[in-house]
Design a protein around this nucleic acid. Structure first.
Lengths: 208, 208
DNA sequence: CTGTTTATTGAACTAAAGTACAATTTACAC
DNA sequence: GTGTAAATTGTACTTTAGTTCAATAAACAG
């Protein structure tokens, strides 16, 4: 599907908050799924994209902050907006340090939360695009043999084939053979493209 | 000088705070320069590197937040730690969104502020290193003629010389001539290095 | 007007990269 | 053992990049 409608996940134990935000968020044309606890949200497991999470700090059981930490540990990149009735500064600072998009105190006005949601959704889209690209590159890297991967790291040093051959004590012909396979497997036609995609995946050039 | 002692700048209108932090910061071997107001700090103008700024939110005249905004506008990248006696959540969130390293409430213990300072100084060092590199690359870019700069953007597309020549309706020979000058002026010997340094300065490949 | 810089191009050349035929050896799975 | 994948190498070739001699034309400064 092209440009799916963004989804807002909301975790808050107060029914009134869930109902109020549900109405507001639907009114601006977004999907919303609500949960009464962190545990309930974690059971859900299916996160649509793009999406974001509005999270009450004070929850019975798993707290909002704990849930945030858990999502970070499990590498689930879901932009988070905290909302709270009884928050304090150190809590908000901690949340922001952990990468929260915003931290709002109840009661907040519609403008504030909508603005935060838009920012969070934008972030979600960017993260997703980057993840997609990363996945695509990784799938090509995965079909490289260990030797080819090593050779890739030599190729992106910018050294001449003969220099690489000397470093590895093999012939220039062999370097060329590997290089050719690497270019095919990585689906690029120029060394420039190869450098670009390796940069994106944090592949470092080999060192003597 | 190699590895100069980091400097902590402190802006707080309370003499007791200035004295207390001065003693603490000196005790861990760092330099400290104190100011009683934002205006006084701005008059100083000479920021040593690496350094960071501890800033009281509530100041007579220019507030801490306003000073932060001013520094951002003037592109002065000084990692900031806010301290405050009477802060609120929205203030702390705003500060963190603006890139503050930390936001501490008085009274804070020595451990907290020292930890924040260390983080800020680390950030300062990283920023400085990146800025140095950026400056060095920029000085080489500056000696490129407009045409050479344009040609550079074509070269880093990864296209063949003949293709670039066709795009610009010039001969392959001319592309080679420019390319050669570009490599000399940019002080690189391989296209790989050229791609790397242009990436660092956000130079985008040309488009048809 | 004159000198300089810049952009352009040419011819001939060297060097490097890449390709199209291969073959050999090793390791490993079934 | 046999087949397969991987790593290595060879020869000969084409293509591309880069260099070394240039020269020409336009723009611009003093």
């Amino acid at each position: 599907m092209i440009n799916p409608v963004p989804t807002v996940y909301l975790v808050d134990d107060a029914l009134s908050v869930r109902k109020g935000l549900e109405r507001l968020i639907k009114s601006v044309g977004l999907n919303i799924t609500t949960f009464a606890s962190g545990e309930e949200f974690l059971r859900h497991k299916q996160y649509k994209q793009p999406s974001c999470l509005i999270l009450d700090v004070c929850l019975p059981g798993l707290s909002g902050m704990e849930l945030h930490t858990k999502l970070i540990q499990e590498n689930i990149c879901l932009p988070i907006i905290f909302i709270t009735g009884y928050g304090n500064i150190s809590m908000s600072v901690k949340a922001m340090k952990n990468g929260a998009v915003d931290f709002l105190q109840k009661p907040f006005n519609d403008q504030e939360i909508i603005s935060a949601i838009n920012k969070a959704i934008d972030k979600s889209i960017r993260i997703q695009q980057e993840a997609d690209e990363h996945t695509k590159i990784q799938s090509m890297l995965d079909i490289l043999t260990p030797r080819e991967y090593e050779m890739l790291r030599w190729v992106i040093t910018g050294m001449l084939n003969k220099q690489i051959a000397f470093e590895l004590n093999i012939t220039e012909r062999t370097v060329k053979a590997h290089r050719s396979k690497i270019m095919k497997k990585m689906q690029v036609v120029s060394i420039v493209e190869l450098v670009r995609i390796t940069q994106k995946c944090g592949i470092t050039p080999a060192e003597k």
